[in-house]
Design a protein around this nucleic acid. Sequence first.
DNA 1: CGTATACATGAAAACGATTTCATTAAAATG
DNA 2: CATTTTAATGAAATCGTTTTCATGTATACG
Lengths: 338, 338
Amino acid sequence: MATIEDVAKFAGLSRTTVSRVINDQPYVSEDKRVRVEDAMKALGYVPNSSARRLRSQKTETIAVLLPRITNPFFNHLIESMEMKASEWGYQVIICQTHNLPDKERDYLELLRKKQVDGIIMTSLENEWEVVEEYLQSGPIVLCNENVSTAPVPVVHIDQEKAAYEATIHLIENGASEIAFLQGGHDSYVFRDREKGFLKALNERGISPIETELFSSAVDVKSGRELFHQIQAHYPSINGVFAGSDEMAAGFIYEAVKAGVKVPEDILVIGFDNQAISMLMNPSITTIEQPFQKMAGRCVELLVQQVEQGYNLKHEEHVFPHRLQSRVSTSRQTNLVPL
Amino acid sequence: MATIEDVAKFAGLSRTTVSRVINDQPYVSEDKRVRVEDAMKALGYVPNSSARRLRSQKTETIAVLLPRITNPFFNHLIESMEMKASEWGYQVIICQTHNLPDKERDYLELLRKKQVDGIIMTSLENEWEVVEEYLQSGPIVLCNENVSTAPVPVVHIDQEKAAYEATIHLIENGASEIAFLQGGHDSYVFRDREKGFLKALNERGISPIETELFSSAVDVKSGRELFHQIQAHYPSINGVFAGSDEMAAGFIYEAVKAGVKVPEDILVIGFDNQAISMLMNPSITTIEQPFQKMAGRCVELLVQQVEQGYNLKHEEHVFPHRLQSRVSTSRQTNLVPL
DNA sequence: CGTATACATGAAAACGATTTCATTAAAATG
DNA sequence: CATTTTAATGAAATCGTTTTCATGTATACG
């Protein structure tokens, strides 16, 4: 492959001048500019990315950490992130942690190796203290998980309020014993939602049931399993707050199969307003997050820090959510949604 | 940040020796090795990725091109690709083309810039001749789209046979006028499936209807729109071959809403065996592709070419598909699936 | 005991760009 | 016209590694 040196020789000029042309810098005469451009074309020259990165100490690449890309919430987030990054001239490296702290650390190392300019974390598997170390090597933006002590920008909805509203919605539609079904492992999202959930129960004089429900994730499979756990151990439950629409869908799928009626026997609410929540029969009431906007903001905040420097301060970017009411929580009608 | 030079000075040794330790090379005595390791630890040294890439002419990064990550077929593919790549020590850059030829070319340029070692294309927006040029800069593996003249490994199922079997299945379950609904733009997948579709019709003495149905994609929205187009212009159609489960789900959603019964009035078959095909009511008959295996093979083939060199020859890797029969094509029972 | 052979080490070249600095020529200024 | 500015150019340093090559020392061999 041709190097800048080859181009320079071919054009009878110096590397410096060629570099100036490549980078659209001033102080190069028109005739030389043309000569360089011709030479580049003739040799099929393309600047070598590695050399550029080394010299300029920039990679124009960011890493996005997430549990797994098949989760619709995360692939919607990353779709928008990739588009926004592309607008800014940045590439996106996809990093699936599968909820493993070690994998997360491996990917954070990309920052120390200077393989990426910055990182967006949409989930958190290590203690924040572990992650904080990496801020020495480059900026980090937190999406979704709101660590209130983290000296970085955090982008999220008000999870507590959303969960509170969802729970109130269940109660007002007739639920009196409600299960809180969130993905297996502890997280800030989990805790914030649980807080809102308990606040609503408390406010309405409902005592929380101490359940021993377990699910490893917020996917369809978990929802299906949890239906059977509830049937077996907590048959009196008549309301379900699910951590995702997929989980709600899995739950409803098994309920329908078992002849348990939603919403007549159990009210179900999901989260994220994914396609599935509209398509299911009964359709699923859910909380909508403006993920495109959140994703865009994350990228903007990160790129800004990369290009203009960053200082360690906590900065919250809270986006509005919206409750989308559908059949799964509606005691009045129970047929096809509008 | 500390460089290899700093480590060398700290340890009182040369860069060369430090490099040997980093890369686990022989010819370094045990005491020196320890001294280097201590120095690295003391200085918090991590090798700079850009410098490494420049010197070794390797990036240990691959790019995966796809239309959009929110399409479940593609995010399932890329989930497995990322995992496999990670096993081999490679990073994955995600490249959404949104079906735009220009965007595709932009991403192919990553190969010329030496920003990636190789590329996996899961879709094709340019003429193959355009793409072929890039083979000068690095290996490419084609997934899904089977360009029979392309001198690269291609990984796919037998789309023609799958479509043929799906169509026969519709016919044997009573469909006599069948619409072929595939995503908007022309593609090899499209053509192969259409071939199989027409072969089945022809074999069973059914003349294809010349429809003017248009959809821009294979997503839920397209499926919904197409239902209405069919209702309005081709009311006699009683069978639908949809290019994806999402499309089939959108179609069925609108059908149910309009009081058209599936499968009684129209039989519907989808593609990919995504979660949605099981969750819908009626559940959707579909064709399953072994995408984990296909994804894994793609990465293996690419990495192998990166590390051991590649020669330009066409090489087909065909994987088995499977028809999963469900309610949407079953005239006998029409209630809850098993 | 002389001579291959393997082991250990470091100086310097290389990877391919960008950037600093020096130099010269041309234009503007008083 | 002398002097300051501005424009145009290139030589060489730099980014941080890996690799080649040279050199020295210990070990094995006949």
